[in-house]
Simulated scan of single mutants.
Amino acid sequence: MIEVLVVEDDERVNRVHAAYVAKVPGFRVAGRAHGAAEALRLTQTLPRLDLVLMDHHLPDRTGLAVVGEMRRRGDGTDVIMVTAARDIATVRAALRLGALQYLIKPFAFAALRDRLEAYAELRHALHGEGEAGQEQVDRLFGACSATAEPGVPTGHSPATADLVRRALIDAEGSLSAQQVAEATGLSRQTAQRYLKLLERTRRAALTLRYGEAGRPEHRYVWATRV
Results as ranks from 00 to 15, higher is better:
residue 164 V to R: 05
residue 125 A to S: 14
residue 92 R to C: 02
residue 49 L to P: 06
residue 1 M to W: 01
residue 43 T to K: 00
residue 168 L to M: 04
residue 196 K to C: 04
residue 134 Q to T: 01
residue 69 E to N: 04
residue 75 D to N: 10
residue 11 E to F: 10
residue 55 D to S: 12
residue 130 G to R: 11
residue 169 I to K: 05
residue 118 A to D: 15
residue 142 G to D: 14
residue 170 D to R: 14
residue 93 A to K: 14
residue 215 R to F: 08
residue 222 W to P: 00
residue 222 W to Y: 13
residue 18 A to Q: 10
residue 166 R to D: 14
residue 3 E to Q: 13
residue 154 T to S: 07
residue 217 E to S: 11
residue 90 T to K: 04
residue 45 T to S: 15
residue 111 A to M: 09
residue 83 T to P: 01
residue 199 E to N: 11
residue 111 A to F: 06
residue 38 E to D: 15
residue 23 K to W: 00
residue 207 T to K: 14
residue 91 V to C: 08
residue 40 L to P: 08
residue 16 V to I: 15
residue 37 A to H: 07
residue 24 V to P: 02
residue 208 L to G: 02
residue 29 V to N: 02
residue 14 N to S: 14
residue 202 R to G: 07
residue 149 E to H: 00
residue 204 A to K: 11
residue 13 V to G: 00
residue 131 E to A: 12
residue 207 T to H: 13
residue 145 S to P: 00
residue 157 S to D: 03
residue 164 V to Q: 06
residue 148 A to C: 03
residue 69 E to S: 08
residue 84 A to D: 06
residue 175 L to M: 15
residue 58 L to Q: 08
residue 17 H to P: 02
residue 28 R to Q: 10
residue 135 E to F: 02
residue 90 T to S: 14
residue 51 L to C: 06
residue 210 Y to W: 12
residue 140 L to D: 09
residue 64 L to N: 04
residue 111 A to S: 12
residue 69 E to A: 11
residue 208 L to T: 03
residue 216 P to A: 03
residue 109 F to T: 02
residue 165 R to Y: 10
residue 109 F to E: 02
residue 218 H to M: 09
residue 147 T to Y: 01
residue 101 Q to L: 10
residue 153 P to N: 08
residue 116 L to S: 04
residue 161 A to E: 12
residue 23 K to D: 02
residue 36 A to I: 07
residue 131 E to Q: 08
residue 199 E to P: 13
residue 18 A to E: 05
residue 99 A to V: 09
residue 151 G to L: 02
residue 51 L to E: 02
residue 8 E to C: 04
residue 121 E to D: 12
residue 38 E to V: 08
residue 147 T to A: 14
residue 155 G to L: 03
residue 47 P to T: 04
residue 206 L to S: 07
residue 169 I to G: 00
residue 52 V to C: 14
residue 172 E to N: 13
residue 14 N to T: 01
residue 124 H to P: 04
residue 153 P to V: 03
residue 157 S to I: 05
residue 111 A to Y: 07
residue 57 H to Y: 06
residue 57 H to K: 11
residue 148 A to H: 12
residue 139 R to K: 11
residue 83 T to W: 13
